[in-house]
Design a protein around this nucleic acid. Structure first.
Length: 855
DNA sequence: GCACTGGAAACAGAA
DNA sequence: TATTCTGTTTCCAGT
């Protein structure tokens, strides 16, 4: 095998990334797992059961929850982790896993000491790769271990980037800004560059015949073996040329500029979106790399999962039947990055190691002991390192070092963090508009995300009185019912230009682009986010990514996720996170799907009959508002269409009469949800709603919660509640401390707003729970970490793999991982409802009407 | 000329 | 299996 050595870019931004990747130094309140997350989540969904509630029980909470993805990774190196939920074949493929894993880990001695060896290609198993979340898995790489900047280039181990590559950059549009290009792709190209005999696409029957000889990237001079495939597959790539090579973007485009007369020009999707070969060069059947695991989307896991099932099966079969090496290789042929573009290569060549000072953790910070924890850190490291990001002249980045990035271990992006802890609170002062059309790489930027009232979203860190600037991290997160995690199909896109007043810096953490924005004391630690756009990655590219379990179709809602890492006197770092309201990024969806932004009431006595005003978008005269109570498994226990006041129906508002609940004798509040339906398949997100016992005062329905007030205060007649409450679960709003309010926090559908922007009046409860900081050692089991008073946790001195890497992936505590199915699915969560549901499936008073399948 | 935007055609895949 | 409906991706044109 060719040994390739790359100067491991040490430079950069890994810093944050690394941190982000999470190693774990910071114990997050709940390190849900990333990679695992999916599986875990899937599990949840698949059966969400009472278990959920139980899971929530303090005792049940598992101590260190490895980040989802981490779990996988966690699996001890060498141990082919069979990611839960992953088809054997998949995992099997990984076997390379072992090796790969070992390789990776090879850099890291068991003792945590990095082992730098001669250059070589490091193949990381794709297990657990999916998403950046799984970072941890990869994490075990030298990069993580050593401060990138420090690492001798020559000794760097090449980790196949592409695993995480989120897409094939080959298709970048000239119009796309650098920032919009995916680095991952590059990574993939790297992978492709290294062709492993066994992995050669050619070898696989499933692979494109054309793959081969693409060979060398003129510019880079790298052999582009596999990469070729990817390239070819990309519409933008010349059949046998490296995109970046002889054919310039322009020339190439020129050839295909106008809309293709024939379908060939347009991206075609074969199985899994592969582009059928239009030319002999194109791969007719790229190897099916799609994730064997069925990804779950709103629609799918809640009931429509079948939709993807077949493809998943096919994928799985392919995975098994396909050249194992390929699998091992971990690089989806199709997805391989083709364009040498910018990322890796460029960075590699151009950027001096350590360029990104900001992100590179100070060497000093890396103590030998810490290496281990550091290992988890990146999966996407490879790419990260290569991300070429223009450095802003502003020096804001510097200060952050010790803070956010300096720490060798920061929570992975898929870890759920509280928005407040102790005196600190990270709050979104101005929410983004509910719709923002994301741009494709083939398009030009569509600008920065804006606020509904004009202007741009803004975020402020309250309670921070130091004079040191901090860095606000922003990435695009999911907005589905599951745990918040980086969105696989969207990336934040850095906007620059005269219209942008906020400086920003890009970094990539585990496949996820992270925009770093300075939080300056002089600005009251407030940042106006006018520099963040949203880039849409092609579904087909992402779905082919190894380990990717999500599907892109109809998975078009995102949230802006902000994080800040506050250094504590103890030397530890407190990490806070807040997510915005969901943002619909699809042009079509934005135009057609109803969207509820506000509701005048959040609860009402079981008798119903009160009017509720919904404000939002895309409401029609014939829109329907359906109230539903869901069982843990997602099926609807009760459904009722609310009466509409058609006369008052407007495109932006609806007036409905709250229907009576099926059970008039509830003794405690019952969480249900409702959605606006404009017809088949055109439904809004579920919004939370609480039915209160008939004799109970319309008030708190839940234990003190930050958003509780909102829920109740929004009672009828009081005007639209400012807080839309889609049923996004932000489980992690819940603190890791099981003993605390875990249970309460896990409401069926905690309004994401909870985490996002808790009312100032938020109860201290969240607070406690929030203990945002992670302890490196993450001691405690899971959630219940011993935490110093004050909520700020101490990062233990001991490097901790726990939670992230420690041995075999441990299934995250159900409680934490389990995303709450949208809606009332978990009455049990409240602890009161469960028993009741079975009893009264339907209320006589409410004639069930046929409704669309559960979401 | 560039960054945005809005709109819609061309496709692919699901229903 | 054919057709229709939906959703995705790309391209065009205007600001």
């Amino acid at each position: 095998m060719p040994s390739t050595s790359f100067p491991a870019p040490s430079k950069f931004p890994l810093g944050p990334p690394a941190a982000a990747c999470g190693s774990g130094e910071t114990l997050g309140p709940a390190p849900p797992s990333g990679g695992t997350m999916k599986s875990a989540e899937e599990e949840h969904y698949s059966y969400a059961s009472p278990g959920v509630s139980s899971a929530l029980l303090p005792g049940s909470a598992q101590p260190s929850l490895p980040a989802p993805g981490h779990d996988l990774q966690i699996s001890a190196p060498g141990v082919p982790a069979t990611a839960a939920g992953q088809p054997p074949g998949y995992g099997g493929a990984v076997d390379s896993g072992p090796s790969s894993y070992f390789l990776s880990s090879g850099h890291v001695r068991p003792n945590g000491a990095p082992a730098l060896e001669s250059p070589r290609i490091e193949i990381t198993s794709y297990m657990g790769l999916h998403h950046g979340n799984n970072q941890c898995f990869h994490d075990v790489e030298v990069e993580d271990i050593l401060p990138g900047s420090r690492r001798p280039p020559s000794t760097a181990t090449l980790s196949l980037p592409n695993l995480e590559a989120y897409r094939d950059p080959s298709c970048l549009s000239p119009a796309s800004s650098l920032s919009s290009r995916s680095c991952n792709s590059e990574a993939s190209s790297y992978e492709s560059n290294f062709s492993y005999p066994y992995a050669s696409p050619q070898t696989s029957p499933w692979q494109s015949p054309c793959v081969s000889p693409k060979t060398t990237d003129p510019e880079e001079g790298f052999p582009r073996g596999l990469g070729a495939c990817g390239l070819l597959g990309s519409p933008r790539h010349s059949p046998s040329t490296s995109p970046r090579t002889s054919v310039t973007e322009e020339s190439w485009l020129g050839a295909r500029t106008s809309r293709p007369p024939s379908p060939c020009n347009k991206r075609k999707y074969g199985l899994n979106g592969r582009q059928p070969s239009c030319s002999p060069h194109r791969s007719p059947t790229p190897s099916p790399r799609s994730s064997p695991r069925v990804s779950v989307t709103d629609d799918t896991w809640l009931g429509n999962s079948t939709q993807y099932t077949s493809s998943a099966i096919v994928a799985a079969i392919n995975a098994l039947s396909t050249d194992g090496s390929l699998e091992l290789d971990g690089v989806p042929v199709k997805a391989r990055k083709t364009t040498p573009d910018h990322c890796p290569s460029v960075a590699l060549k151009v950027e001096p190691a350590g360029e990104d000072l900001g992100t590179t953790p100070p060497t000093a910070e890396f103590l030998p002991e810490e290496y281990p924890s550091f290992q988890h850190v990146r999966k996407g490291a490879f790419c990260d390192q290569y991300l070429s990001v223009p450095q802003h002249p502003y020096q804001w980045a510097r200060p952050r070092s010790p803070t956010a990035y300096g720490s060798p271990s920061l929570p992975a992006l898929d870890w759920q963090l509280p928005s407040r802890s102790g005196p600190y609170e990270l709050r979104i002062e101005v929410q983004p508009k509910p719709h923002h059309r994301a741009h494709y790489e083939t398009e030009g930027s569509r600008g920065a995300v804006k606020a509904s009232a004009g202007g741009h979203p803004s975020v402020q860190l309250h309670g921070y009185l130091e004079n040191e600037p901090l860095t606000l991290q922003l990435f695009i997160g999911t907005a589905d019912d599951r745990l918040l995690r980086p969105h696989a199909f969207y990336q934040v896109h850095r906007i620059t230009g005269k219209t942008v007043s906020t400086t920003s810096h890009e970094a990539i953490l585990s496949n996820t682009k992270v925009l770093e924005i300075p939080l300056l004391p002089e600005n009251n630690m407030r940042a106006i986010v006018d520099c963040a756009g949203i880039l849409k990655l092609r579904n087909s590219d992402i779905e082919l990514r190894k380990g990717e379990t999500d599907i892109g179709r109809k998975n078009t809602r995102v949230r802006l996720v902000f994080r800040v890492h506050i250094p504590q006197p103890s030397g530890r770092t407190l990490s806070l996170q807040v997510a915005s309201n969901p943002i619909e990024c699809s042009q079509r969806s934005a135009q057609e799907l109803p969207l509820v932004e506000k509701q005048s009431a959040a609860s009402c006595p079981v008798l119903g009959g009160k009017k509720m005003v919904l404000s939002g978008h895309n409401f029609l005269q014939d829109s329907k508002v359906i109230f539903v109570e869901k069982a843990p498994d997602g099926h609807h226990i009760w459904e009722m269409e609310a009466k509409m006041d058609r006369e008052l129906c407007k495109p932006n508002s609806l007036v409905v009469e709250i229907p009576p609940f099926r059970n008039q004798r509830i003794t405690s509040p019952v969480q249900v949800s409702f959605y606006v339906c404009n017809g088949k398949r055109k439904r809004s997100q579920c919004q939370r709603f609480t039915y209160l016992p008939a004799n109970a005062p319309a008030i708190k329905t839940e234990p003190t919660d930050d958003y509780e007030p909102v829920l109740t205060c929004g009672l009828m007649g009081q005007g639209p509640s400012p807080l839309p409450k889609p049923c996004y679960s932000q489980p992690l709003a819940v603190p890791p401390d099981p003993g605390s309010c875990l249970l309460p926090s896990f409401l069926p559908c905690p309004p994401r707003t909870t985490m996002v922007s808790p009312p100032p009046s938020a109860s201290p409860k969240l607070h406690d729970l929030s203990a945002a900081t992670y302890s490196k050692g993450m001691a405690g089991p899971g959630l219940g970490l011993p935490r110093p008073a004050g909520g700020v946790l101490a990062v233990e001195e001991t490097p901790r793999l726990v939670g992230v890497h420690p041995g075999p992936p441990q299934p995250p505590p159900p409680a934490l991982l389990r995303p709450q199915p949208c809606g009332p699915a978990h009455p049990s969560a409240t602890g009161h409802q469960l028993p009741q549901r079975p009893k009264a499936p339907r209320s006589e008073s409410t004639a069930p009407r046929p409704l669309p399948p559960p979401e």
